[in-house]
Write a protein that binds this DNA or RNA. Sequence first.
DNA 1: CGTTAATTTGAGACCATTCAATTTCGGTGG
DNA 2: CCACCGAAATTGAATGGTCTCAAATTAACG
Lengths: 241, 241
Amino acid sequence: MLDVHDLSPLVRRWSKHSDLSAQDRDAILALPFTRKVFGKDAYVVREGQETTDCTILLKGFAFRQKLLRDGGRQIISFHIPSEFVDLQNGLLGVADHNVQSLNRCEMAIVPRSALMDLTASNPEIRLAVWIDTLIDASIFREWVVNVGRRDSRARIAHLLCELVFRLKRSGAGQNGFFDFPLTQEQLADATGLTAVHTNRTLQSLRRDKLIKLNSGMLTVLDWEALCEAGDFDELYLHQQV
Amino acid sequence: MLDVHDLSPLVRRWSKHSDLSAQDRDAILALPFTRKVFGKDAYVVREGQETTDCTILLKGFAFRQKLLRDGGRQIISFHIPSEFVDLQNGLLGVADHNVQSLNRCEMAIVPRSALMDLTASNPEIRLAVWIDTLIDASIFREWVVNVGRRDSRARIAHLLCELVFRLKRSGAGQNGFFDFPLTQEQLADATGLTAVHTNRTLQSLRRDKLIKLNSGMLTVLDWEALCEAGDFDELYLHQQV
DNA sequence: CGTTAATTTGAGACCATTCAATTTCGGTGG
DNA sequence: CCACCGAAATTGAATGGTCTCAAATTAACG
């Protein structure tokens, strides 16, 4: 696939939940940004760091995480192209979590001031940005539930449901067949399990013919059963059309 | 304590992270609202419900929660007076979680339209509201970490640290002595543990002289040790002065 | 002062972890 | 194109933290 060189993915995504005029779209595309390519596992932002930019993922996968004193790691969210991976940190001024690339990524780095100016003068865009941060928050809430109250099988299934749902919505994949570069260790760190147990849990989902997962490709064999297994209800993603 | 009849708690809180002028304050106090009293365990908003208002907690404690298909409950956040308990739901239009009172509560119910008008015309206030939702999100992220990667002792300790920190900051309590009406079952539902195990964990914290907790009152006996036990770092609360 | 809610205690079962070893996969260089 | 290498995935067995189920005790409240 070709590299991405403008902010059109962002426009496309916001157009789904907000009513942007042609001028709005042009204004977004006119945002100043620096394009930057990250290798695998590179740090985009570090916890504690003062931030002056907001980062948009144009291509590749990324994730947010926090490290514990004892060395443990908790992944807090995954991100797919067209998403702001660092709006929350950017707006608050001091990063409260780490943002890392998962594979080779292309990012657009927008100065916070430029984004703030745009949202100050344009209510429609302001609302779109705000809604983005609110949907982020809703996803975090669901993750608290996932990690707090579901058993390993439901946790993994739920996470897969969420990612597949978002990938589908962004136009990625076809016939339930997706690029899925997450390692089992990353799945484990996102669900609060160990890599070993994640492995066994995935095997059980495969055995029951809910999914196929290998070589970085995920196939959903039985979407309904997967949702059932994961106690998945898409409401929290606020993507109803 | 006397009942609260205006939005001054909100003004007081926002003034801590935002630079509000006298006009800004007056504009906030001029927001139209309905005052409503809730008994213990009353539902303020239900998941799935369409929302037209934003609710501010004036007095008492409240919490957000989600119910699982299997009957389990996960508490997602606790709220103390002056906080928006329902800004996220209110802005998104459809509630993705339940909001419940914990004890007798007084709430101010502000029509979403009034809040949106105010933020549309006043950039300073808009930023204050936005920052509020972003700090909420940061707290959710930390809860994912708490529930996902810490053992029972650290989970409980961390939750206590967060609540004490926020209570202190809002001016409640003195000498590490706080009104603390949460039941062990609620603590359990917030940490992803069972009530039984929460009980044993609290006993261990008491035995080690970190806290005293009974009759709805919490005393912090050793703040540093409690933070240590809970792996607590206040950064995520974004309250640095 | 009775009644219900909340806390506490005990014992056994189980889900997930830990630790270690093995196999497979993906990429690289000869 | 195959040999090699490190990363990722897989397997096994033993341990352990937390849960479950029940019963007993204590606190809260009208």
